[in-house]
């Protein structure tokens, strides 16, 4: 397992950092580098980047790619915090590189590392395939109820609210990376379970029973240790632990014969 070294305090002693930034107009980036096919171990490269107003870490990575090192590997797409491509471990926290402003970090040493505990393809790009495949285990699509309707299903504002937070998930895998139970077991993990709950909680859904069965079992909801790492890692402020808790309640109710 890779040890991520943390360089410099984050979001502390604002005064010092602000004045450093003012004086130098530059920030120091320590960027994780690794090509497992060519190197035995990872290392960090240091880059000094001129900081523009409201510059994001993603923009800084582009500055590095375009002006200093055209070999850097990372993922990106929307740059507006909605596509979920650029979740990384930045200065000791899970963040989306695109919505993390450089001015909010300690410019003397900003650490940019890939999502911990996922297999590294190169530098900041990790293997997402196992994460995507996990969703297949929970029937990851909406199932219409038996009662067919011509127009839209009627769903009360209150019922819609139930799925408000959990449909915000952008599949960035920060929670997957942060959950220690996914590191060592075949645990479905917080993102996949939240997705399952997204359907269970939807008043229009018709396959609640089957889906609950799919999240039952030792690699399902029961493995969660409620340590809230996922909640802390989530850039969308989703409470995965609560979603898992609700799935457990649903299963309990069924086991006790309430439903």
């Amino acid at each position: 397992m890779l040890v991520i070294k943390s360089l410099g305090p984050d979001e502390r002693s604002k005064g010092v950092e602000k004045s450093y930034l003012m004086a130098n107009k530059k920030a120091v980036f320590n960027v994780f580098r690794f090509d497992p096919d060519k190197e035995k171990e990872p290392h960090y490269d240091t880059f000094s980047v001129e900081v523009k107003v409201k510059m994001s870490v993603l923009e800084a990575l582009f500055e590095i790619l375009e002006k200093q090192d055209n070999t850097l590997a990372f993922r990106f797409s929307c740059r507006g915090a909605i596509c979920g491509s650029c979740a990384m471990f930045i200065s000791g926290k899970y963040r989306l590189a695109c919505e993390t402003l450089v001015e909010k970090l300690d410019p003397r040493g900003i650490e940019v590392a890939p999502l911990p505990h996922l297999r590294i393809l190169k530098d900041l790009a990790v293997d997402m395939e196992p994460f995507y495949r996990k969703f297949d285990r929970i029937m990851p699509f909406f199932q219409e109820g038996k009662q067919k309707v011509e127009r839209e299903y009627i769903q009360a504002i209150r019922e819609r609210k139930e799925i408000d937070e959990i449909t915000d998930c952008i599949l960035c895998a920060a929670c997957e990376s942060a959950c220690p139970l996914t590191w060592t077991s075949d645990y479905l993990g917080p993102a996949v379970l939240t997705k399952a709950y997204r359907f269970v909680a939807d008043s229009r859904e018709g396959a609640t029973k089957e889906r609950l069965s799919l999240v039952d079992g030792e690699d399902g909801v029961w493995r969660c240790h409620t340590i809230f790492n996922c909640v802390e890692a989530c850039p969308k402020r989703i409470n995965q632990t609560r979603a898992i808790e609700k799935l457990r309640k649903g299963l309990f109710a069924r086991k006790l014969g309430f439903k």
């Binding site: 299903y153 769903q155 504002i157 449909t167 359907f199 939807d202 229009r204």
Partner: peptide, 12 residues
């Protein structure tokens, strides 16, 4: 019908 969570009017 495929599950897109549209916002709702008062009458759902």
């Amino acid at each position: 019908h495929w599950g897109c969570p549209f916002s709702r009017t008062k009458d759902g």
